[in-house]
Amino acid sequence: MNAVPVNYYIILSAILFTIGALGVLIRRNALVIFMSIELMLNAANLALVAFSSANAQLDGQIFVFFIMTVAAAEVAVGLALIVAVFRTKKSIDVDQINVLKG
């Protein structure tokens, strides 16, 4: 049985990361932007796991656990902020979050 070459995983993770970064820049809904950021983090997770297995080292896989934990903490704070903004503005469209400018 042939293993999938590590390059394939890295290319996939680069594609995921790009989709995530573009999503942050293009989408206007705060929740979707947030989901795109999570996609970027998971792209990094995929790359770390793939490299970890290619290098026969556990460091990368351990890092993935840390990233998942931190992402969960970020979700807690991020969703709370989005809910707070929605209560005040009745909208989470980032184009309407524009009191501050200049």
Binding site: I10, S13, F17, G20, A21, V24, A30, I33, F34, I37, M40, L41, A43, A44, A47, L48, A50, F51, S52, A54, N55, D59, G60, F63, I67, V70, E74, V77, G78, L81, I82, V85, V94, I97, L100
Partner: peptide, 23 residues
């Protein structure tokens, strides 16, 4: 919310950079 979204966005770049350096 602006600080959060851009801070998390930049965190994503750091993590991916770390993944590449690790690789």
């Amino acid at each position: 919310i602006k600080y959060f979204l851009l801070g998390a966005f930049s965190g994503g770049f750091v993590v991916y950079g770390v993944a590449l350096v690790f690789g």
